[in-house]
Structures are given as C-alpha cells and as structure tokens.
C-alpha cells in the first residue's frame, strides 16, 4: 500500500517536472508578450508587472504579421486537407488490398523521409522557378503535401489495418461498394488516426521554416518567416516578437484541441465480441 502511494507521488512529481519544462517557455513567451520593453529587459526578471496590450496593438498594426498568419492558415489548411484527401484512400488500399509492388510502395512512402529536407531545397527552388511558382501559396502547399502525405499514409494504414475485416465483409454482403466501405466504415472508424495525422500535418506546415524562406519573397511570407525577420537590427523588439509568437502558436493550438477530441475513445469497441 505504502509503496503504491509512494509510486503515485513519484509519478506526480515526474509529471510536474515534465510539465514545467514543457510549459515554461510557453509561459515565458505569453507573459512577456504582455510586458513593456522596460519590464522585459529588467534584471532580475520581474514576475509581477502591469500587463499591457501595447505589443499586440503593434503586431496587429503591422500588416506583415496579420497577412503572414493568413498565409500560414491558407497553406496549412490546404496542404493538410489535400494530404488527408489523397492519403486516406491510399492508406485504405495499402491496408486492405494485395497488389504487385505493395511493399515497394510502402517503402517508398517511408523513404521519402530519409532525405534531409535541405538536400532538396535547391532542386525544388529551381523547379518552382521554372514553373513560375515562386512566392505563391501553391508551391508551399505542394511541397508540404509531399511531407505530410507519407505521415497520413503511415498512420492511417496502421489505423485501417486494426479495423476488423469482418466489418468490411459484412458490408460487402450487404451490397456496399468499395467506395461505400471506405466512406461509411473506414473513414468514420479510422477517425482517430486521421485526426492524429492531420494534427501532425498542420503543425508541420504551420512551423515549417526552411522551404518557406527559400520559396517565398514578399507576397506569401508565412508566420515563422515573419517572426524570424524581427530578429535583426540593433535593438530587438522583444515584446513584439513575443506577441507575434503567441499569435502564431494560437491557431495551431486551437486546431489541435478541436481535432484531438477524435483521437481518444475506443471507436471500434462493440464491433466484435
């Protein structure tokens, strides 16, 4: 009994430590975004201060930040949505059909991630330039899809494989077409996997910096690009950087919270036995 409650206390401390390490930078960023420049540069740091919305006023006054958030939203939403639309049927096929070259295709999806992104940056730049796609939403969406698609395919294939085969057979006997089976059975039951891969995809697109820097100029700068652009000059505008950071983190947090509702819950429970 004693060892069990000791275990619980340890468990609690462990959780607290991990939580503190993970959350502290976020806390620092958010609290700093409400500080004046004087409070920000105070040493030792001030814990109690009079919050100001000045930094936010400045951020939203700056066209660059708001349009960067909009650009990021467009790119992240479309790349994630398209990757899910393309990836889930592929995962369905990989999970349920036997066809020639299936394992090669599977390996190809994995091998996409072997290559360091920077190795491809230049070829893709040249390609985009040739196609006249530089500094467009489309080029970022296309490039991000190539990253997100394998994630969607892996996670969803695994998820679809865990759906009992009898469900598909029962549906087939009832006259369901392949599309019906995919649409009415695999998609709803695969929702946890789809949600996880969508969150991964969205976060990836949202935070991606390298390709966003290389492939965009002025029109389609995304949030991370704009955030880094403040990191120059003589005196760093810390308050504005922190407020921008908070604004950037917000949409992805909201998205993850919304979607994660579908991640838990044993959806297949009650199907068999």
């Amino acid at each position: 009994m004693a060892s069990r409650s000791n275990g619980r206390i340890l468990h609690g401390f462990g959780l607290l430590a991990v939580f503190a390490v993970a959350i502290f930078p976020v806390y620092w960023m958010v609290s700093s975004s409400f500080k004046t420049q004087t409070d920000l540069l105070a040493s030792p740091p001030v814990w109690l201060f009079t919050p100001t919305l000045g930094n936010y006023a400045e951020v939203f006054a700056d066209q660059k930040v708001t349009s960067a958030v909009v650009n990021s939203l467009i790119v992240a939403v479309f790349s994630t949505a398209l990757a899910v639309v393309l990836g889930t049927p592929a995962a369905f096929a990989l999970a349920r059909y036997d066809f020639r070259g299936k394992s090669d295709l599977w390996f190809w999806f994995i091998s996409n991630r072997f290559i360091s992104p920077i190795a491809l940056a230049l070829p893709i730049y040249i390609l985009a330039q040739g196609l006249g796609l530089l500094d467009t939403h489309l080029v970022l969406i296309l490039v991000y899809i190539t990253f997100i698609l394998p994630i969607v395919v892996w996670i969803c294939t695994d998820q679809f494989r865990s759906i009992p085969k009898e469900l598909e057979e029962a549906a087939r006997l009832e006259g369901a077409s392949q599309f019906d089976i995919f649409w009415r059975i695999y998609l709803p039951l695969g929702l946890p996997g789809i949600a996880v891969s969508a969150i991964f995809g969205f976060i990836f697109s949202w935070n991606e910096l390298l390709y966003a820097l290389v492939l965009t100029r002025r029109d389609v700068q995304t949030a991370p690009v704009v955030a880094t652009s403040f990191m120059s000059g003589y005196e760093l505008p810390w308050g504005k950087i922190m407020a921008t950071g908070t604004v950037i983190v917000l949409p992805v947090t909201i998205f993850a919270l919304l979607v994660s509702r579908h991640m838990v819950r044993g959806l297949t429970m009650g199907a068999t036995k």
Binding site: P164, E166, A170, L173, A271, T272
Partner: peptide, 17 residues
Amino acid sequence: PAKRQVSMVFQSYALFP
C-alpha cells in the same frame, strides 16, 4: 457476394460500431 442474395451472421457479430 452482394449479388448472391445471401446474408451472413458472423461469429464476431461484425456490427458497425
């Protein structure tokens, strides 16, 4: 299968959860 006009009850029930 669908065209054979047969119905099957599976050991695992195979209900759509």
